[in-house]
Amino acid sequence: NLFVALYDFVASGDNTLSITKGEKLRVLGYNHNGEWCEAQTKNGQGWVPSNYITPVN
């Protein structure tokens, strides 16, 4: 599942992941309501807002 970041997101805690607009990432899963997804980039792994990313076509 390859996705791309639509916006910059700055991590606010130990379990969140900073991403940069245009960065590619893999989604590993979603939380119970789908608002957050666990993602992996070359810089690490953590939670990002699911509305900040979109699938790569």
Rank of each mutant, 00 (worst) to 15 (best):
N1D: 07
N1K: 06
N1Q: 07
N1M: 02
N1I: 02
L2C: 10
L2K: 15
L2G: 04
L2Q: 08
L2F: 15
F3I: 01
F3Q: 09
F3Y: 03
F3M: 04
F3D: 03
F3R: 05
V4I: 14
V4G: 02
V4Q: 09
V4C: 05
V4S: 12
V4K: 13
V4E: 11
A5Q: 00
A5F: 04
A5V: 06
A5I: 01
A5K: 01
L6K: 09
L6S: 08
L6M: 10
L6N: 08
L6D: 11
L6A: 12
L6C: 02
Y7M: 08
Y7I: 14
Y7L: 12
Y7N: 12
Y7Q: 13
D8V: 00
D8M: 01
D8L: 00
D8C: 03
D8G: 04
D8K: 04
F9G: 01
F9V: 13
F9S: 04
F9A: 11
F9W: 09
F9I: 10
F9M: 06
F9D: 01
V10H: 15
V10Q: 15
V10F: 13
V10P: 08
V10K: 13
V10Y: 04
A11C: 09
A11P: 07
A11T: 11
A11N: 07
A11Y: 05
A11D: 10
A11V: 03
A11H: 07
A11F: 04
S12C: 05
S12Y: 02
S12V: 07
S12N: 11
S12A: 14
S12I: 06
S12W: 04
S12K: 09
G13F: 08
G13V: 09
G13K: 15
G13M: 08
D14M: 07
D14S: 10
D14P: 08
D14C: 13
D14W: 05
D14R: 14
D14L: 04
D14H: 06
N15L: 08
N15P: 04
N15E: 12
N15K: 15
N15H: 10
N15M: 14
N15T: 11
T16P: 07
T16L: 03
T16M: 02
T16K: 10
T16Q: 15
L17R: 04
L17A: 10
L17H: 06
L17T: 08
L17N: 05
L17Y: 14
L17M: 14
L17C: 10
L17D: 01
L17I: 04
S18L: 08
S18A: 10
S18D: 11
S18P: 10
I19M: 09
I19W: 00
I19P: 00
I19D: 01
T20G: 06
T20S: 09
T20K: 04
T20P: 01
T20D: 04
T20I: 15
T20V: 11
K21H: 15
K21S: 05
K21Y: 07
K21Q: 13
K21N: 12
K21M: 07
K21E: 09
G22W: 02
G22R: 03
G22H: 03
G22I: 01
G22V: 00
E23V: 03
E23H: 02
E23K: 02
E23A: 03
E23R: 01
K24N: 01
K24F: 03
K24E: 13
K24T: 05
K24P: 03
K24G: 08
L25C: 11
L25K: 01
L25Q: 00
L25G: 09
L25M: 10
L25W: 00
R26Y: 07
R26H: 12
R26Q: 04
R26G: 08
R26W: 10
R26L: 10
V27Q: 01
V27M: 12
V27Y: 00
V27P: 07
V27R: 06
V27H: 03
V27T: 04
V27E: 00
V27C: 07
L28R: 12
L28K: 05
L28G: 04
L28E: 07
L28H: 02
L28D: 07
G29E: 08
G29W: 07
G29F: 03
G29K: 13
G29C: 06
G29D: 13
Y30A: 08
Y30F: 10
Y30S: 14
N31K: 15
N31A: 14
N31T: 13
N31V: 07
N31I: 09
H32V: 09
H32Q: 15
H32Y: 13
H32L: 11
H32E: 14
H32G: 14
H32R: 14
N33Y: 01
N33A: 12
N33H: 13
N33S: 11
N33E: 12
N33V: 05
N33P: 03
N33I: 04
G34I: 03
G34Y: 07
G34T: 09
G34H: 13
G34P: 02
G34C: 07
G34N: 15
G34D: 12
E35C: 06
E35A: 07
E35P: 07
E35R: 09
E35I: 15
W36E: 09
W36K: 02
W36D: 06
W36C: 03
W36V: 05
W36I: 04
C37S: 08
E38S: 10
E38M: 08
E38W: 03
E38A: 03
E38V: 06
A39V: 12
A39P: 00
A39F: 03
A39H: 01
A39G: 13
Q40I: 05
Q40F: 09
Q40G: 06
Q40C: 10
Q40R: 14
Q40L: 12
T41C: 11
T41M: 05
K42D: 15
K42Y: 13
K42C: 10
K42W: 06
K42L: 08
N43V: 12
N43Y: 06
N43W: 08
N43A: 13
N43E: 08
N43H: 08
N43R: 11
N43Q: 14
N43P: 01
N43T: 08
G44A: 09
G44R: 07
G44S: 10
G44T: 02
G44Q: 14
Q45H: 13
Q45M: 08
Q45R: 08
G46I: 09
G46P: 00
G46V: 06
G46C: 09
G46K: 01
G46W: 05
G46E: 01
W47G: 00
W47P: 04
W47I: 06
W47K: 03
W47E: 01
W47R: 08
W47Q: 01
V48T: 02
V48M: 03
V48E: 00
V48F: 04
V48G: 00
V48K: 00
V48R: 00
P49Y: 01
P49L: 04
P49F: 00
P49H: 04
P49Q: 05
P49N: 02
P49S: 01
P49M: 04
S50L: 10
S50Q: 15
S50M: 14
S50A: 13
S50K: 15
N51R: 10
N51F: 12
N51E: 12
N51Q: 03
N51S: 12
N51I: 06
N51G: 10
N51P: 10
Y52S: 12
Y52K: 09
Y52N: 13
Y52R: 11
Y52F: 14
I53M: 06
I53W: 00
I53D: 00
I53T: 10
I53Y: 00
I53H: 01
I53A: 04
I53R: 00
T54N: 13
T54Y: 09
T54R: 13
T54S: 12
T54M: 12
T54G: 14
P55L: 09
P55N: 14
P55Q: 07
P55G: 09
P55F: 07
P55W: 02
P55A: 12
V56H: 12
V56K: 14
V56F: 14
V56I: 07
V56A: 06
V56W: 06
N57T: 05
N57L: 14
N57P: 13
N57M: 01
N57W: 01
